[in-house]
């Protein structure tokens, strides 16, 4: 409990650092919201016109004052107003979050459902041809960038089969579950593919380690069946590195899968952030990055707590 409290206390510090970094970094990039909206025509503005737009976009104050105001708003739960959407930043982010969670969960399910059995299988067939085949696929999966895999999937489907999930008009899960799943399956496979490969490799090597441990040999000598040895005795211990990996990956995915969302035109958190950067929607960039950082912290904490549940020998925060 003490440990949990300590971890929670570091949250505000980390978030403050993140907020400082993103606030000033985005302002270091040349071009502001006015240029993003008007392009080269921004040069046609008179001084008075420019001043009135700057006031509208909140660019008329010194940067430090802007930061102070934003931080003060933050403590009141106000992340500011997005200039692109004309809505509170938090509202915009929350609207995109369910899709991001769904994509993260679906691709995790695919990755774990394929990766863990494949890794265990390969470990038990160490260095036999079937092990090599699994390892080859894992290598391929990890080294293929998601944009290549995603684009190849789209290209094959559109050119050869003339089918594609409806892109651009996203169907929320609770409006039309089947339509939603049809749209999500390809992006989830694309994301899950690379991750499954990573899971396969790590669970294979962890499994190999554990299978040579003394307690496994003890179990075998006591007459436990191969199935019991692998699934009941070895697997729980071999899963620890998989949990670490999944936690980190899940944390990333909650920040939005920028490339996959972009390829499949999914309105998730990643695409939102990317668009916000390109439109210099400062409040939205700041809000989104802070939100992503917060999620990452929470997921990391949950992963650490999961260790203790998986392995009673691990005592969090112990001396």
């Amino acid at each position: 409990m003490n440990y949990l409290l300590q971890r929670l206390l570091t949250f505000p510090l980390v978030l403050l650092g993140v907020s400082l970094l993103v606030f000033f970094a985005i302002r270091l990039v040349p071009g502001d919201a006015i240029i993003a909206m008007l392009g080269t025509e921004a040069g046609l503005l008179t001084d008075a016109q420019r001043a009135s737009l700057a006031a509208y976009f909140g660019l008329d104050q010194p940067v430090v004052v802007q930061y102070g105001r934003w931080l003060a708003g933050l403590f009141q739960g106000n992340l500011g107003i997005s200039t692109t959407y004309g809505k509170p930043v938090l509202e915009v982010i929350i609207a995109r979050f369910p899709l991001t969670i769904e994509l993260a969960l679906l691709s995790m399910v695919i990755a774990l459902a394929v990766g863990v059995p494949a890794g265990v299988f390969a470990a038990t067939r160490n260095n036999r041809p079937s092990d090599l085949v699994v390892r080859l696929f894992a290598m391929l999966g990890q080294s293929t960038p998601s944009f290549v895999f995603g684009l190849v999937l789209i290209y094959l489907l559109s050119v050869n089969f003339h089918v594609l999930p409806a892109m651009g008009s996203f169907t929320p899960l609770f409006v039309d579950p089947l339509g939603n799943l049809a749209q999500m399956i390809l992006p989830s496979i694309t994301l899950g593919f690379a991750f499954a490969a990573a899971v396969t490799r790590i669970s294979r090597s962890a499994m190999l380690d554990v299978l040579s441990d003394d307690y496994v040999r003890t179990a075998r000598s006591k007459g436990a069946s191969q199935r019991d040895v692998v699934w009941k005795h070895a697997l729980p211990n071999a899963l620890i590195p998989v949990v670490t990996l999944s936690g980190v990956e899940f944390g990333y995915l909650l920040g939005g899968a920028v490339i996959v969302e972009q390829i499949y035109a999914l309105p998730g958190l990643g695409r939102l952030t990317l668009d916000a950067i390109s439109q210099r929607d400062y409040a939205l960039v700041q809000g989104a990055v802070l939100f992503i950082a917060f999620n990452f912290l929470v997921v990391n904490l949950l992963v650490d707590l999961a260790y203790a549940a998986l392995d009673p020998r691990i005592r969090l925060g112990g001396r």
Partner: peptide, 20 residues
């Protein structure tokens, strides 16, 4: 209904698939 798609080549893909 106007959909914002990520690139012009993905628009062609969607037109091939009779989506646009």
């Amino acid at each position: 209904t106007i959909s914002v798609l990520p690139s012009e080549s993905s628009i062609i893909d969607s037109m091939r698939a009779n989506q646009i």
